[in-house]
Write a protein that binds this DNA or RNA. Structure first.
Length: 447
RNA sequence: UGGCCGGUAGCCAAGCUGGUAAGGCACGUGACUGUUAAUCACGCUAGCGCAGGUUCGAAUCCUGCCCGGCCAGCCA
């Protein structure tokens, strides 16, 4: 069957197909799946924006088209022309009466597409991640991630922040705590960054309000559902801001991201199976508790038998501790003023209680753990020198960082949010490895 | 790095008090003009992570190693 004119039918995307009801359109995509019933074939096409079922009755399509469809294998790439028809039997509301199919590349039947609709273990799926990303759930997650990133960048751009990109290759450890990946840098040793924070403190002194958005690397040998060796962080840094200012910034940023995901990617969240009622109320203000209050919560939990180990004051929280604390709230909870000795060297001490740091961790609900760590930074040159010595850090490597306190130092604060943990929480995923197209973990660097 | 669990066809998986490898999915062929995880029939595919040991005989027992998962520590 030929189309009526020489003008080729317009290419449309499957999400837009409803705008072409009754019209002949072209879809560029892949065969997602196929069902046959004798002289009737139902090819299901996907194009990256959605899925639509085609209908091809033998007596209504050309013999060539019918044969092509009958022999078509899953995930073969195809260009399909057909007439859009609304149909209440279709999940998306529309079907495509197939007129013509052009096979771009046919998947051979003796080596079929390995990922079927069900029953795959995680190892197999990760080994085939380059193909797994095509599945509807993975596509939905990638779209939600993109929306979260877009909304966060938008959030800062609209508030007068300037994006400043810190280096990824660095000469020394930023914080001196995590294990870093080392690389050969023209016969010198260099490291992959674990945080852009120290560098954006410098750009904050230039531009006032800045943020960075980029990859970071940790060579820690942790293999849990919350860890990747390569992950993305968004880090704002604000000159003249105090701890309270960035706590407010953090809750506004998180709310903005959650609300944007719900407003713009709701169907994707539903595809993923997220219970969005748990996200609807994620709006400021978030509960704020001190470290001391968090410890009380843990001691209560221990007394009730809900927390196994009795928490030792002055320690940092373990993963089960964070889960219990966050379980007491239905929004992210901001825990501030930890003992200085369990925190990073650059954190400003609380003037009221110098043993505490002016810092904040944001713990996500539903056991997703820490998604944000932030603090007010030490402003005084001599105090920072002292801290660097106490932490046995190489002083010379921090000369430039100390300069920031020598040449017009000001109070300033910032935080970092791990994108994958935030996406895992917002999507309600079991593991962060699904939040990024190609997760790098302790045990996997292929594909 | 430690504790626990696991590696059987392309995938999922039973078998693991030793006796000679279920079943399902996928794929192929045939039937079916409304299928939605379609259905029905037939067919194809493994010698059980690797190495060694015990035994008449090992997927099953023993030793060592490799790989993966979960949890913990550490962190975002």
């Amino acid at each position: 069957m030929e189309t009526e004119s020489n003008i080729p039918p317009p290419v449309t995307s499957i999400t837009q197909i409803g705008r072409h009801d009754g019209e002949i359109v072209t879809i560029q995509g892949w065969l997602y799946n196929k069902r046959e019933s004798g002289k009737l074939i139902f090819p299901i096409f996907r194009d990256g924006t959605g899925v639509v079922q085609g209908v091809a009755p033998k007596n209504q399509v050309s013999p060539e088209t019918f044969e092509t469809l009958k022999n078509l294998t899953d995930e073969s790439s195809v260009i399909v022309t057909g007439k859009v028809r609304s149909d209440k039997r279709a999940p998306g509301g529309y079907e495509l009466d197939v007129i013509n199919v052009t096979v771009v590349q046919r998947v051979p039947e003796d080596d079929p597409y390995p990922i079927s609709g069900k029953e795959h273990g995680i190892d197999f799926l990760m080994e085939n991640r380059h193909l797994w990303v095509r599945s509807p759930r993975q596509c939905a997650i990638m779209r939600v991630r993109a929306e979260i990133i877009r909304s966060i960048r938008n959030f800062f751009d609209e508030r007068g922040f300037t994006l400043t990109d810190p280096p990824i290759l660095t000469p020394a450890a930023c914080e001196g705590t995590s294990t870093l990946f080392s690389v050969d840098y023209f016969d010198d040793e260099a490291f992959l960054t674990q945080s852009g924070q120290l560098y954006i403190e410098a750009t904050a002194m230039a531009l006032g309000k800045v943020y960075s958005f980029g990859p970071t690397f940790r060579a820690e040998k942790s293999k849990t559902r919350r860890h990747l060796t390569e992950f993305w962080m968004v880090e704002p840094e604000v000159a003249y801001a105090r701890l309270d200012d960035i706590m407010e910034l953090a809750e506004n940023m998180i709310s903005h991201a959650v609300q944007s995901a719900m407003a713009n990617r709701r169907t994707d969240l539903e595809t993923i199976g997220r219970d969005v009622t748990k996200l609807e109320h994620i709006k400021p203000p978030f509960p704020r508790i001190t470290y001391d209050q968090a410890v009380e919560i843990l001691h209560d939990g221990h007394a009730k038998g809900l927390v196994e180990a009795k928490f030792e004051y002055c320690g940092d929280f373990g993963s089960p501790d964070e889960t219990y604390i966050s379980s007491q709230f239905d929004k992210p909870v901001m825990v501030h003023r930890y003992p200085a000795k369990v925190k990073a060297f650059y954190m400003e001490p609380d003037p009221q209680r110098p043993d505490l740091a002016l810092c904040v961790d944001v713990l996500a609900p539903e056991g997703y753990g820490e998604i944000i760590g932030g603090s007010q930074r030490i402003g005084d040159y001599n105090q920072l020198v002292q801290r660097i010595r106490e932490h046995a850090l190489p002083e010379a490597a921090f000369k430039w960082y100390l300069d920031l306190r020598k040449y017009g130092g000001v109070p300033h604060s910032g935080f970092g949010m791990g994108i994958e943990r935030a996406v895992a929480w917002i999507c309600g995923l079991e593991h962060v490895r699904e939040t990024i197209p190609f997760a790098r973990t302790l045990t996997r660097i292929y594909p």
